[in-house]
Amino acid sequence: MVAIPPKFTPGVLKEQQKQANYGVLEQLEGTWVNVTKDPDSKMLGVHTTCLPSPGTNSETIPGKFRFLCQNYTEELTFTRVPGGVRNRVGANEQFCGAMKYETSIIDLQGHLLHEENGMYLWLDQIYNHAANDKSIEMDIGYPELASGDGANGPVYVPDYSVARSGTIPHGSTVQMFGKSSIIQGAPEFPHGTAAWDFDFLAISPSMGGAGTTPSTPIDLDEPPPPWVFDTSLPATDPSGNKTYTQRILKHDLYPYSVRPDLILRDAIKDQTIKHFTLIEMDTQEATGPQGGILNIPIVRRFVPVVKMDMRMWIETVEEDGKEILQLQYEQIVDFEFHFGTDGGVTRWPHIQVNTLRKKT
């Protein structure tokens, strides 16, 4: 049996106008930055991006790509939107706790890599708003409506509690939905061959999988296998899976060039984390059809951005006798361009990860 949401009353409206409920997003308010620009630090961001190689197109010369991987620093600011944002939808009322965000991502040479702004929304505040004598008179509800109609439904029960809408100047707009949970202890990340999981790699199965099979994963806590450094591969096996992806495995930022979130793991390995809030969001699969991405025509035609997943950890770190908030995130954006080794459309992961603390 579905529980009826709390009743909407003038008192509810007054309280929401005064102070919204921001839920777990309240912890985000402020400006977050990297604590260092030291290129050897694990407290830096990492991004991986695959791009169509100049001269290529999906119709005649597919499959060639340029791989970019860099450290970066970031300034990420969250600002409250005062008061609950009211969505009136008849028998249901919703108040959103909105938190504006703006981020600037800079490479270690001071060049802008990424700019984005948008909103995070806390969507947990649902109320039941039944018809009453006043609303029927004002809205000409009689004879279809009587006072009290809608008091028992229809009931809207969202399968998510948090959302993010963002605008990127490449010409893409994203809408994501998800949930949050509070977990004791520190986040857990894999080690060894367990880290060879294509859901989190900069190498996708449609890109050839680096010549691996499920029974022969690469141990990302060990040096890359010898074939990664075989300079004859481009000549002896120009279209082979190993040649296709060896530059990703021999990059200077290995293993983070292959699985970026391992730098998040390594950043916290010596920390004492008391508990953390985990926020997980996506544009399509886990939450169904509600989310999505819109692209400008040239992006939609040649390199459509089709899917985005995000994990965010808001961590309480015990350090020098104090509790400090720390923010870690991973977002994976899938591009589609050219054809894969199986003849189908290829998905190319663009991954960003970072560890941030509030600016003092």
Rank of each mutant, 00 (worst) to 15 (best):
P10N: 11
G11N: 15
G11L: 10
V12H: 08
L13G: 00
K14N: 09
Y22S: 01
P39G: 02
D40G: 11
D40I: 00
K42T: 07
K42W: 04
L44K: 02
T49P: 00
P54N: 09
G55E: 03
K64Q: 13
K64R: 07
R66N: 13
Y72G: 01
T77D: 05
V81A: 01
N87T: 08
R88V: 14
F95R: 05
C96M: 15
G97F: 07
M99R: 06
Y101L: 07
G110S: 02
L123F: 01
Y127V: 04
N128P: 00
A130D: 02
I136P: 00
Y142I: 05
Y142P: 00
D149V: 03
A151Q: 13
P154R: 09
Y156I: 15
Y156Q: 01
S161K: 15
P169W: 14
P169V: 05
H170C: 01
S172N: 11
K179H: 02
I182P: 02
I182E: 10
E188N: 09
F189M: 12
G192L: 04
A195C: 06
D197T: 08
F200W: 15
P205N: 11
G208M: 12
A210D: 05
G211K: 10
S215H: 07
T216R: 12
P217Q: 06
L220F: 09
D230W: 05
G240M: 10
G240Q: 05
K242Q: 14
Q246N: 14
L253D: 11
R265T: 06
H275W: 08
D282A: 06
Q284V: 00
P289C: 07
I293R: 04
N295G: 04
I296F: 06
R300A: 15
R301W: 04
M308V: 12
D309K: 12
M312G: 04
E318L: 11
L325I: 08
Q328Y: 08
D334S: 12
D334I: 12
D334A: 08
E336Y: 13
E336C: 05
W348F: 12
T355S: 15
